[in-house]
Each structure stands twice: as structure tokens, then as C-alpha cells.
Design a protein around this nucleic acid. Structure first.
Lengths: 104, 104
DNA sequence: TTTTTGCTAAACCAAATGGTTATACATACC
DNA sequence: GGTATGTATAACCATTTGGTTTAGCAAAAA
């Protein structure tokens, strides 16, 4: 068990978001994931560890392989956080327009 | 104009998410924001700069004051990214359960 | 005009981040 | 058994991050 990772920080990295996108299609071994990026296997290993630490990926050991499966539950926190502000950005008058109007 | 900041990275920091939460209530001067945190005003200035660089906050100069207003448009990208996976986590059988079933 | 206020900018720092290469190790294959 | 494969771990490194303190400056107040 590691320090509970912050999911917001986990998805801050574009490589990790790409990994999540790949695993959304299907479960993949760690090596297979690594082949799709132009970086070393240990680098992907590290990203995968961060993703598992915040619950975004579950790893099942099968022989010498590591089968990585995305688990999206943790994304609910992100979706909810962003969505709470939805009413603001869907307003016909967005913030910038409001500011301009106020200046008149 | 600064380097276009990544909104995912901007919201990775809990202090910045808290700032956004405060500004959702009302426009505040930079100093007023800083008073609500146990860190120096230059530190808040830096956070605010990052927030403006990705369009999450708009700063209007008024005399010597800086009036900070949240602009939530940029959050749409985050909401949409997270929501595209919504169908996964709302499934009655979540990923973990599926894995357990497969092992039987 | 002098002083205070709100903020920026600069210099600095420790710790975290994201990568590397090299090594080790367990599993699978021949 | 010996070799190849999949992955983890360690040591290392440069850069970024998130904070600090100090100084400077323009606007407001006294």
C-alpha cells in the first residue's frame, strides 16, 4: 500500500491520460502499453504505478505478465468537480462578456 | 501572452482548485484570496498566474488592485474528458467485479 | 509630500517529477 | 539446464514545481 495518490495529479500528465485512453479499449500487458510510446519500459512502469496508486488502473499478475485494466470509478471525482461549475460555462453570457458589460 | 498552459496541470494543485472554488462565489482581489491561505501573497500571485495562463481566471486591473474572476469555459475540456468514460463507472458491474468474475 | 497598500519581479531553495540506463529476478521456452 | 522474456528496482539526472524572502513600484491615503 502506498500513499493514497491524488487522481487530479495522476491525470495531469498527458502520457497517463493516453494510457487510460488505451486501456479503455481493452486490457493490455505493461509491455504492450510501453510499445505504443517512445519511452522506456521503466518509464511506463512508473506511470502505471501512479495510476494504480490512485485506483485508475488495476494490475493482475499472470505469470510474468502484468495485465493492466482501467478502472474508471476514480474519475467520478474529477467529473463531479468539473461539472459543479457547468452552469457557469453554459450561460449564454460567459464571464468575459459579463466583465466587458460591467465596464460600460 | 504566455505559453498556453494545460488546464489539467493547472487543476492538479489543491490550492488552485480551492482558489477556483472561492472565485466561483464572487470576484475577489488577489490580496483577499491570499488572506484565506496560509502562504505568502507572492505564492498566491504565482498560482493566479498559472490560472490565468490557462484561461481559468481573468484579472482586471482596477487602480492598484487586481480583481480576479473565474472563467469556467476551460473546465469544459476536463468535464468532457472525464465524462467520456462515464459509461464505464456507472455500469452495475464495475471493472474490479469483472476481474473477479473472470478468475472463477 | 510622505507613507501605506496591493501587487509584481527577482533570486533563491528543497522537493517532486519524469525521464534515463543498468541490474536483478521470476517465469516461460528450448 | 540454459536462454529469452516481462517486469521491477535502483541509481542517477535535469527540469519543474511550489514555496520563501527581499526589493521595487504604482496607486491611494494621510
Amino acid at each position: 500500500m502506498k500513499a493514497r495518490r491524488d487522481v487530479f495529479q495522476a491525470i495531469a500528465d498527458p502520457t497517463r491520460r493516453a494510457i487510460i485512453g488505451m486501456l479503455a479499449q481493452q486490457t493490455l500487458t505493461l509491455n504492450t502499453v510501453a510499445e505504443n510510446f517512445s519511452m522506456s519500459q521503466p518509464a511506463i512502469s512508473k506511470h502505471m504505478r501512479i495510476l494504480t496508486e490512485c485506483g485508475l488502473v488495476i494490475i493482475v499478475k499472470q505469470g510474468r505478465e502484468r495485465h493492466c485494466t482501467a478502472s474508471f470509478q476514480a474519475l467520478e471525482e474529477v467529473a463531479q468537480w468539473a461539472q459543479q461549475y457547468r452552469r457557469f460555462w453554459t450561460n449564454r453570457l460567459d464571464t468575459l462578456e459579463q466583465l466587458l458589460n460591467e465596464e460600460e
